[in-house]
């Protein structure tokens, strides 16, 4: 628990984590505001949710910087140190350290999702033509929170392996915002629907464009969780075996 408290304190005192938070809240609510202005849109049942599927960028940045910040090397004039040495002398068990990090990233990602969902849905509800949120939205919003927490962990796991934030950040951001490689893959093989992000969004998105594959929300969550668990196991094995 001490290790988790330390990791939460680290995240809270890292400016990049606040940039991640701002991105996660502002991006989906701003997009939602623009969509709402355009009047009623087809596929209105996913309004707000689509924006939140995109706003997961914030959770990605959070997951990446949580671990890449450990490996940032100080300038040579400052002695060329890295925070990871301090972290691992404070918490020498690699597994405990990584578990604490995962805990902090999951909590951070989930909290961010709650705030972002509140902001985005607030904007959507302010629009006149949208149906009010009902009981059916509760499990979907829970799905959003799970999706953000799991995506943050996914980005975290990859960055544990790379020890550098740039590549995973570019990869995840491009896939989420510019060209969804995983989405294009679903055109080639239906199996791609079971990739972590493609499956994960079905926890709360009802209709994906040009896609008839049905995955129940619970199944979707389990599929994504399985991917994340597998990745984190690999990351933990690599992390415990290599020199810091």
């Amino acid at each position: 628990m001490r290790a988790l408290a330390a990791e939460l304190a680290k995240l809270a005192s890292l400016p990049a984590a606040w940039v991640a938070a701002a991105t996660g809240v502002l991006v989906p609510s701003a997009v939602a505001a623009m969509t709402a202005r355009g009047g009623p849109v087809p596929g209105g049942e996913d309004i707000g949710y689509q924006e939140l599927a995109f706003g997961v960028l914030g959770a990605i940045v959070l997951g990446v910087v949580a671990i890449s910040s450990e490996y940032v090397t100080e300038s040579a004039e400052s002695g060329g140190g890295r925070q990871i040495t301090t972290s691992l002398t404070a918490v020498p068990s690699r597994t405990r350290f990584l578990l604490a990090k995962m805990g902090a990233v999951a909590i951070g990602g989930a909290l961010l999702a709650v705030v972002a969902a509140a902001a985005t849905m607030g904007v959507v509800q302010a629009g006149a033509q949208t149906p009010p949120l009902g009981a059916g939205d509760v499990p979907r919003l829970a799905g959003v929170v799970c999706y953000w927490a799991l995506t943050a962990l996914l980005a975290f796991g990859v960055t544990v392996l790379t020890r550098h934030g740039v590549v995973p950040l570019a990869l995840f951001i491009v896939n989420t915002s510019v060209v969804s490689v995983t989405y294009l893959l679903t055109k080639i093989t239906l199996l791609a629907n079971y990739l972590p992000d493609m499956a994960g969004v079905r926890m709360f998105i009802r209709r994906l464009p040009d896609n008839d594959v049905e995955i129940a929300p619970l199944t979707a969550g389990l599929v994504m969780a399985a991917w994340v668990a597998a990745l984190l196991v690999v990351a933990t094995v690599v992390f415990t075996r290599r020199d810091a």
Partner: peptide, 16 residues
């Protein structure tokens, strides 16, 4: 233990 440099992330304050 004192190793290379400060062992701290540059964006954090010393107290943090």
């Amino acid at each position: 233990a004192v190793l290379d440099g400060s062992g701290a992330h540059r964006a954090r304050t010393g107290r943090a």
